[in-house]
Write a protein that binds this DNA or RNA. Structure first.
Length: 570
RNA sequence: GCGCUCGUAGCUCAAUUGGAUAGAGCAACGGCCUUCUAAGCCGUAGGCUACAGGUUCAAGUCCUGUCGGGCGUACCA
């Protein structure tokens, strides 16, 4: 519908160009949008406002001229008007509004999907939590956000791949291995005090027990080794990865690719990427300035191999190799992102915790230097989650190892509530998650409110059958009976759904879907309370059933995009 | 200090990416069930969009500055 209005205006403007109001080289850029205020019609354009200068006319006068030149539009547009500073508002006819109902019934679960992203290949990398422990709430939020961005992009026709980057190389894996080994010794009565920096949490004991169960006393030696045996490290990581996979599965999140950092080392890709940067003259031996504004007692000037990231928009150059010659994590990350870039994606999207924000520029800089494509990598930051229960914050401390895991929360509140709630805020904003509220069966709880609207639609179907009435089918000629303002509100909302999906996908802003669904659910509840669906009048009844059926379908489609169930009964 | 990010009703947050009179929910107050789920609905009240400039026909949104919160700030990942 929007495109029809769009074409209508363009045609009219061309007509005015012939009359000499616009010069031949005037570019017609204008918007057609949905006014927030329904008194302003179904669509409005700012064409007269934007083009007033080119026409050398006051905006309102130009608007009048445009309106006068608009062609006849048969059934679709009932009226138009010039309003405000020079907007042109279009009011759709009832007939045109009603068209959305058969469209929705026909498209079914595909309504809202489109092909505007067809041909685009996009990779979303998310979660990528270190395999050194169970996932916490923040990981869960990143997981849900990434998954839904992927779903949205698929809904507009993109080819999407979900990838998890496993940090299975580096110091923290040894810390895990050492922690497990110490607990393992303790299981055999060989108490060793846990050194500074080791993981104190209970889950480490669990891993140690699993290790003993599998291997018995095989890793017990006369003395605790300085480095944990590689097999122990691998066992511990695999155990953690198992947890992570299980937790993600609980949230119905599945990855296409699990990419191992270690494989980069094994294939020599890191040294290779360093050499490539070297060839381009972007590496040098240097000493970084001490960072300002932060007291660093241990700072000392150190010569390092530095990448000239400052040539590509970063603040300072970044170390690729440590002073002992080994590669930094950053070096591995460059190799990883280059590998992704060479897999022919049109866009790479990373979902990162907000604490990694300072890292974006350097990775983008490296990627730009290596590929020459500055916009390839897009990073979305996800802020932290604060856990509440009945309005009271749940205290957590990572240091003492007392924190609530993602699994505990999902098991208590359920995947639907967790997913919906995590999506309710824009990723950039902190999020308060209240366990009690997320499970409440009242309209304070947004997820319940939306699911209840869907269930109500289905309760009407059940009533229909109980009354012995025939199953419903849409009949176009009945729809003329939908004339109530509440019905028009619903029709307008329904017709917006594909635009909302498109917008949410393009902007990568999943929270637009829950907000839309809340709006639709509210309009439906209002309607349901004020009007009887199963009216005596068969035509009116048919029309209303067609309408609420469409509402039910759209709510279900919206929830499906969020990975949330649409129950038929509460 | 610098970078990123956020600042909107008492609280938690939206706002079609520059559009018209800034919207919801919670909390407060007042109403609606012999009728399809009251697990719901309706109404009242609540605002100098942190502040000051600038760009524009039009600014919560863009640019500059100030104030305030969060995150980050070499050989951790």
């Amino acid at each position: 519908m929007r495109s029809i209005i769009d074409r209508l205006i363009t045609t009219t403007l061309e007509r005015l160009r012939h009359e000499g109001i616009f010069s031949p080289d005037t570019a017609f850029v204008f918007n057609v949008e949905r006014p927030r205020d329904k008194n302003h019609g179904d669509f409005a354009t700012n064409a007269a406002l934007v083009l007033a200068k080119a026409a050398r006319l006051p905006p309102r006068l130009l608007a009048e001229k445009i309106v006068a030149a608009l062609p006849d539009t048969q059934n679709d547009v009932e009226k138009w008007e010039v309003a405000g500073p020079g907007f042109i508002n279009f009011f759709l006819s009832d007939y045109s509004l009603h068209t959305i109902i058969p469209t929705i019934w026909q498209a079914g679960s595909q309504f809202g999907h489109s092909q505007i992203g067809a041909g685009r290949k996009i990779q979303v990398e998310f979660v990528s939590a270190n395999p050194t422990g169970p996932m916490h709430l923040g990981h869960g939020r990143g997981a849900v956000t990434g998954d839904v961005i992927a779903r949205l992009l698929q809904a507009i026709g993109c080819t999407v791949e979900r990838e998890y980057y496993i940090n299975d190389a580096g110091a923290q894996t040894l810390v895990l291995g050492r922690s497990v080994l110490i607990r393992y010794y303790a299981l055999f009565g060989r108490a060793v005090t846990l050194p500074e920096g080791c993981y104190p949490a209970e889950y480490v004991v669990e891993i140690a027990q699993a290790l003993r169960e599998r291997d018995g006393d095989r890793w017990l030696a006369a003395e605790l080794p300085a480095e944990p045996p590689p097999a122990v490290v691998d066992f511990a990581m695999a155990h953690c990865l198992g947890w992570i996979r299980d937790d993600l599965a609980l949230l119905n999140i599945h990855f296409d690719t699990w990419f191992s950092e270690r494989s980069l080392h094994q294939r020599g890709l890191i040294a290779q990427v360093a050499a490539r940067l070297e060839e381009k003259g972007l590496i040098y031996e240097g000493i970084l300035e001490p960072p300002k504004g932060k007291l660093l007692e241990e700072w000392e000037p150190r010569p390092q191999r530095l990448f000239r990231s400052s040539q590509f928009g970063d603040e300072v150059d970044r170390p690729l190799q440590k002073s002992d010659g080994t590669f930094t994590y950053f070096a591995a990350d460059i190799a990883y992102h280059l590998d992704k870039a060479e897999r022919n994606f049109d866009t790479l999207i990373n979902i990162w915790g907000a604490d990694h924000g300072g890292y974006i520029k350097r990775v983008q800089a490296a990627l730009t230097a290596l590929t020459g494509k500055p916009g390839l990598l897009e990073v979305r930051l996800v802020q932290m989650v604060n856990l509440f229960r009945g309005g009271q914050p749940v205290r957590m401390s990572k240091r003492s190892g007392t924190f609530v895991t993602l699994r505990e929360v999902v098991e208590e509140a359920g995947s639907d509530a967790v997913r919906f709630w995590f999506l309710l805020r824009s990723a950039g904003a902190n999020l308060d998650f209240d366990l009690e509220l997320a499970m409440a069966k009242t309209n304070d709880n947004p997820i319940f409110y939306v699911q209840y609207a869907h269930a109500r639609v289905h309760s009407v179907w059940r009533r229909l059958a109980e009354k012995g009435l025939p199953p419903h089918t849409v009949q176009r000629d009945q729809l003329a009976r939908l004339t109530e303002p509440d019905e028009r509100d619903l029709l307008r909302l329904l017709s917006r759904f594909p635009e909302v999906v498109e917008n949410a996908a393009l902007e990568k802003e999943p929270q637009k879907i829950p907000y839309y669904l809340l709006e639709l659910a509210a309009a439906f509840h209002t309607y349901y309370n004020g009007h009887r669906i199963l009216d005596e009048d068969a035509d009116l009844r048919g029309a209303r059933l067609s309408l609420i059926g469409a509402v039910g379908l759209v709510i279900a489609n919206g929830l499906t995009l969020l990975g949330v169930h649409a129950p038929e009964q509460m």
